[in-house]
Amino acid sequence: MKKHVPLALFVVIVMGLPVLLKNPYYIGALVFVGIYSLITISLSLVLGYAGQISLGHAAFYGIGAYTSGLLTTRWHVSPWFALACSMVITGILAYAIGKPVLKLRGHYLAMATLGLGEIVYIFFNSAVDLTAGPSGFGQIPRLAIGGLVFKDDIRFYYLVWFTVAVLLALVLNIINSRIGRALRSIHGSETAANAMGVNTASYKIQIFVFSAVISAVAGGYYAHFVTFISPTTFDANTSILLVTMVIVGGMSNVWGAVLGAALLGTLPEYLRRFGDYDILVYGAIMMVIMMFAPGGLVSLAGLVKQKFVGNLSREPAA
């Protein structure tokens, strides 16, 4: 049962935060943190567990947002169905992209995913007839369950963080299982993993597609929350920001992914008075973390972790 303590604590915090934070403005910011968390949790499986670098995840985020946005505004598909469609379409695209891309490693993989992200970004900008080009489009309908429309920040807050909690529960089960070990073995040594009977190529694709599909959900949420989308939200800077969130938090730990999203996702709020120069702060944080704590903030809390969580993880499954 101890295993469930962190998750339970997490749910309590998430439920309680809106009560503490009276300012609706902060709730809005936390919605974005939730949307980012969806991506970073799934991205940490690709990056930290399976050890595959992706600098193009904003593309899947964007494809999800555009598919859901276009289906609902142009063809008046119901938002939930549109969201499901965007998951399927992004999944298929991610499979088609992942098949050749994941054969690459290291720098090659990084550049290839960066290039793919850039191509998708160029497409959003250039396919004006479909995407309305650089100016983007609005009036995307909101999500609703029966009569309950997720129209204000606080309702959307609960929707997003409910999704994050569900994802976390599923992912935490996965990482402490044969599949989680298989993913980490790919990171450790692909050759040895293969020789021990792990179908590394298949696992790499599966986890890549999974994280793309979750990113599409995040994109769909973004579209239906903001009700307006344009290409700049999904450019290479976003891809890099997502990877930075995962790394700053601690890439081989899903809680790190949430922590990273929370820190860097709210950073713009603290840096408001710096205006556009927040880019300098981002760069500096990234540089310092990479140089002095490549394991991320979670690894800095290593001492504490060994005392508490370390013992927890040792308990056999109750």
Binding site: I53, I247, G283, M287
Partner: peptide, 18 residues
């Protein structure tokens, strides 16, 4: 690691850009 090097040079590029 390769990832650290990639991220450090990316961080460098962001700083220089800033």
């Amino acid at each position: 690691s390769v990832l650290v090097l990639i991220m450090i040079t990316i961080a460098g590029s962001i700083l220089i850009k800033g």
